[in-house]
């Protein structure tokens, strides 16, 4: 019994002892987007393996969750860097300001394409954003008003499309990929289609669009089993599974690295990370990490991250971005759209 009393005492002492450990630390703490996570962890691992610093801890919290933690304050128990698959929102910027996190630098690392893919057993297909929107929207305009989406077959949307059941496996509402899909496909297309009266991003819930969880590997497996189906997921999963899947051309452009980089492929987005400059002195590993991440060997044309699916920025944009990050250019409200 004495030993039990001792152990519980020791644990209590340990808990008490860890209170107030807010001094300088070696280990960098990073949170944020699950899309940026594989790239950031690649850089983190490289930093851990080749320098004296311990490998940074990277949590995949989603872009929004990361911003919430990042903007919570300047204390050393808050993250030093947050990754995002979209730009910081104005509301998040204001939250940061309120909590005293005023000195932030924004870095763009490259692009990520969103693929609309199908099994390789099918003939290649060419879709427009309007057609995709009509297939996934909750309502479609007919006779001047919005009616619940009646389309069950691609050929009903456009007679040039194959006679094939519409079934789409895609990300759930919590996913940044879904946000991007809604913005880049549905918002853009609904402005062109008469009857929506501007931006429309509601996705149908009658079983045609199947939310398939955050795990993109699951969608890949489903596409193998159901050759009628299409899937929506990040470009890197298409690249890794080219033996089983093919990406649909969207507005005539196939999802390929060059087309995504040049902006020709319409469904691509920028990837970001944000640096909390007030931690620069207390967390010395930060500057090495940022320098490594922005280096040509990581995000350049022949960089390692390209090998795992990051689409590099064009050369001049990349060099300009590297310079601005090196100077730790402070993020202003006017930089956010």
């Amino acid at each position: 019994m004495k030993t039990i009393a001792k152990t519980s005492f020791a644990v209590a002492a340990l808990v008490a002892g860890t209170i107030g450990t807010a001094e300088a630390r070696d280990q960098l703490r990073i949170v944020g987007s699950s899309t940026v996570f594989p790239f950031a962890s690649y850089v983190a691992e490289e930093l851990g393996a080749t320098t004296k610093w311990p490998t940074p801890v990277i949590e995949s919290t989603g872009s929004g969750g990361g911003m919430k933690l990042f903007c919570a304050g300047n204390g050393l128990d808050t993250p030093d860097i947050t990754n995002a698959s979209r730009q910081m929102k104005v509301s998040e910027f204001e939250r940061c300001q309120e909590n005293g996190v005023t000195d932030i630098t924004q870095a763009v690392i490259g692009y990520d394409g969103i693929a609309f893919a199908q099994s390789k057993d099918n003939d290649p297909i060419n879709l427009t954003r309007e057609q995709i929107t009509l297939a996934v929207a909750k309502e479609v305009p007919q006779g001047g008003k919005l009616v619940p989406n009646p389309y069950k077959n691609w050929s009903e949307i456009d007679s040039s499309l194959p006679d094939r059941e519409i079934i789409i496996y895609g990300p759930p509402t919590t996913s940044g990929t879904r946000d991007a899909f809604e913005e880049l496909v549905m918002e853009a297309a609904s402005e062109e289609i008469d009857g929506y009266g501007g931006e429309y991003t509601k996705i149908r819930q009658d079983g045609v669009y199947v939310p398939s969880g955050e795990n993109d590997n699951l969608i890949v497996q489903k596409l193998e089993q159901n050759t009628d189906a299409f899937g929506i997921f990040g470009y890197s999963f298409l690249e890794e599974n080219e033996d089983k899947l093919q990406g649909a051309k969207i507005d005539g452009v196939a999802p390929e690295a060059d087309a995504i980089s040049s902006g020709e492929y319409p469904v691509s987005r920028s990837l970001f990370f944000y640096i909390k400059n007030s931690h620069a002195d207390d967390v010395p590993a930060m500057s090495d990490y940022v320098e490594l991440f922005m280096s040509e060997k990581m995000i350049g044309e022949i960089g390692y991250l390209k090998g795992i699916g990051l689409i590099p920025l064009p050369k001049d944009v990349r060099e300009d971005m590297r310079e601005r990050v090196a100077e730790r250019e402070q993020l202003e409200l006017s930089d956010l759209k």
Binding site: A40, A44, E45, T55, E59
Partner: peptide, 8 residues
């Protein structure tokens, strides 16, 4: 925060 990339 334990579901994270922690290789060490």
């Amino acid at each position: 925060g334990m579901i994270a990339f922690i290789p060490d």
